[in-house]
Design a protein around this nucleic acid. Structure first.
Lengths: 196, 196
DNA sequence: TTCTCCATGTAAGTAGTTACATGATTGG
DNA sequence: CCAATCATGTAACTACTTACATGGAGAA
């Protein structure tokens, strides 16, 4: 039996300093076949960009952390003389990812959208200008939908490889923006009727 | 004529260090009648919380910055012996707010939602567990809708005082979550059919 | 040879949160 | 008199971004 304060004992069991969402994102991307840090960044931009971002500067430390924890295995695989580390998920990694997905931790919905803020305060504008803002917001959503629909073929491909959920989140994104457009459209006549 | 590098001259014209979104949020809230820092925090929690948050620690410095810039005017108005500063928007403040609302700066849509990330990676789970996750996400949206609908009476009141846009953003929020629920519902049978 | 892409790494800075500190008022 | 609420302020910390630095590979 060892004598040490409880806090330290607990810390020893926990082992690693606990992974944050960015690390799980990297882990999940490796699982889906993104091999290098560079590929992960690209895949993120192509797939989850509209509900999660991650900068390159976060990816490499996350990879290190995950490898250290034994959740991914990396090896050097240079292209010619250009250095390159490629990673694969380990059995422990699969387990850790699934555990995170199952965990009952709260998932607060947090949107942080300047456009919505501007819309909220738009009564400070005249009717014509408020209408212009509303239309800019609508156009943004139309643009987003176009982008998301552009991704759909790729999502259908990963679906055929047994990953149907990327397509699901893509559809949610499209539905989000459609909903936004609908509410804006409904509101427009109310503004058009106003004098400046 | 003065001799100084261009950068300095420009900085001199700009005068203040430029306001960020949090400062404009505070400004807008003062315009809508929130008088003290404390009231602003409460109003934010009641109104824009689901698409923008702001911590108390940001509010007081923002108020100072805005007052310094002449966009709001504050005076001491203690309640008994309890100190209290109350603020009003100035003409310059109205102008600055409107200018911000009109400005053509890009408004990138940025959502940051762990639930969507988990959904995206949910193929790492068996069908039953993925279904459970999907239902948790759905319940979250149902909960959000209930909260938002609870706010609606208050939004209708401010509408009658001439501010119709808070109600608009509220409707957008409700529509968001309805859309999310719809897509989830559509997807559920696909998972229910799977073996674990 | 020059541009774009592949690839990794890090230092410095920003934006924001949590937690703490203080103290008065109101209502049960 | 005790708890909840009103009210302000700040120090320490965390998370994340931007910008810089380096260099090879392939294509025009």
């Amino acid at each position: 039996m060892r004598y040490m304060p409880l806090a330290s004992a607990t810390r020893e069991l926990d082992a690693q300093p606990k992974l944050g969402p960015p690390a799980y994102v990297v882990l999940g991307m490796v699982r889906l076949g993104a091999r290098s840090g560079y590929e992960i960044k690209q895949t993120v931009e192509l797939s989850i960009r509209f509900f999660w971002t991650i900068s390159q500067a976060q990816i490499y430390p996350s990879l290190e952390q995950l490898e250290h924890a034994g959740l991914i295995a990396g090896r050097s695989e240079p292209q010619g003389r250009r250095r390159r580390r490629v990673f694969e998920i380990t059995a422990a990694g699969e387990l850790a990812l699934a555990q995170w997905l199952r965990s009952e931790e709260p998932m607060p919905f947090e949107l942080r959208d300047v456009a919505m803020v501007k819309l909220f305060f738009a009564d400070a504008l005249g009717g014509q200008e408020a209408l212009a803002l509303l239309r800019r917001v609508r156009q943004r959503s139309e643009q987003q939908i176009a982008t998301l629909e552009g991704i759909e073929p790729a999502a259908r491909l990963v679906e055929q490889e047994g990953n149907a959920h990327p397509l699901l989140t893509l559809h949610i994104g499209i539905a989000f923006h459609r909903a936004m457009i609908d509410v804006c459209k409904e509101f427009e006549p109310q503004l058009a009727g106003e004098q400046a």
